[in-house]
């Protein structure tokens, strides 16, 4: 870990301003990911801006019947929130599928949105990585890449976003609220928030320098069966090989009336293909939906299995939803 300055601003505005003023500043909330990265010198902030005391830990109803989740709401608290459990069960399920009890007690909503990839090579400073050291190359391509992306990857980076929460937020069409150093607030749709790696994999989100996440808002609840299916290499405390957040409203027979499907473990961001959802509603066939979903999918060797696994997981989840 490199020595760093530590600031603990009292207001949101001060926090954003500090972040703009100080070079190489990072916000810290739960620290469940950032501290590990700092120990390994993958992140080497010159200043840590501790936002834990900012008044951003409330969950409130919105006028539209949705939910506004403060940036500092802990994952455990969010998963246990009565409205989340009742109206946004897919989110509660996704949160509880992630990490461990201890980590969920610490980790925050905004921090989870920003958690970085688990790519083994990103974590190893003796190896090239375009995300960690832009221009150095990607060691994961041609290496051991079991946990890497099969969709939306680039020649520069094949990393995945490891979050479970993000997948559910994508299915729920969440919006991210921010404040910038000038005090201007902005709303970013979750679909536009995380980026694909392209040739700048070090830029992972749409956030601008100094911009601070203040809340995540959810639109009014979507009727249907909420499921989060996480396929993983052990029964708990493992990142998803493939996961799916599904909200499916039953229709006639095997054909759902409406379907929302977002996937984790496949790409640099939560993966959602509206055409796949439409195909499922039109044809009732999960395999048809999978065809649309997996257009352009490409394995990297050790992760080839994710393609058939995604098809199977989708099929199993749709069947579960229709049975529920």
């Amino acid at each position: 870990m490199k020595a760093f300055a530590y600031e603990r601003p009292a207001t949101v505005q001060d926090a954003a301003r500090l972040a703009a003023e100080r070079p190489e500043a990072r916000f810290i909330a739960g620290g469940t990911n950032l501290l590990d990265l700092m120990k390994l010198q993958i992140e080497t902030p010159a200043t840590l801006i501790d936002v834990n005391r900012l008044p951003l830990a409330e969950v409130t109803d919105t006028a539209e019947g949705g939910l506004r989740i403060g940036a500092l709401v802990r994952n455990a608290d969010l998963a246990a929130h009565p409205r989340v459990r009742r109206d946004y069960a897919v989110l509660a399920k996704a949160l509880l599928a992630g990490a461990s009890g201890q980590l969920r007690n610490r980790a925050t909503t905004a921090g989870n949105l920003l958690q970085r990839t688990r790519c083994y090579y990103f974590y190893d400073t003796t190896k090239p990585c375009n995300k960690r050291a832009p221009g150095s190359g990607c060691a994961a391509i041609g290496g051991f890449n079991r946990i890497m992306a099969v969709l939306g990857a680039s020649e520069a980076c094949i990393a995945t976003n490891p979050s479970d929460m993000n997948v559910a937020l994508r299915a729920l069409d969440a919006t991210i609220e921010t404040v910038d150093p000038q005090g201007a607030s902005r709303r970013i749709a979750i679909a536009a928030f995380h980026r694909l790696p392209g040739d700048t994999p070090q830029i992972e989100t749409d956030l601008r320098p100094g911009e601070l996440i203040t809340a995540v808002t959810l639109p009014k609840p979507v009727e249907g069966v909420h499921l989060y299916r996480k396929v993983r290499d052990r029964a708990s405390y493992a990142f998803a090989t493939v996961s799916v957040a599904a909200i499916i409203a039953k229709g006639e027979g095997d054909r759902p009336q409406r379907a929302t499907l977002a996937f984790g473990g496949l790409a640099h961001k939560p993966w959602r293909v509206e055409a796949a959802e439409a195909a499922l509603v039109e044809t009732g066939s999960a395999d048809e939906a999978a065809e649309r979903l997996l257009e352009g999918a490409r394995g990297q060797g050790s992760n080839d299995f994710k393609i058939p696994l995604t098809r199977r997981t989708l099929r199993a989840t749709v069947a579960d939803a229709l049975r529920a």
């Binding site: 688990r118 083994y120 003796t126 290496g143 051991f144 052990r234 708990s236 405390y237 493992a238 990142f239």
Partner: peptide
């Protein structure tokens, strides 16, 4: 080199 050299990606059984 050993690629998954930490306990996040070298899996041992969890309680579950």
């Amino acid at each position: 080199h050993f690629v998954n050299h930490d306990l996040a990606e070298y899996h041992i059984p969890a309680h579950a």
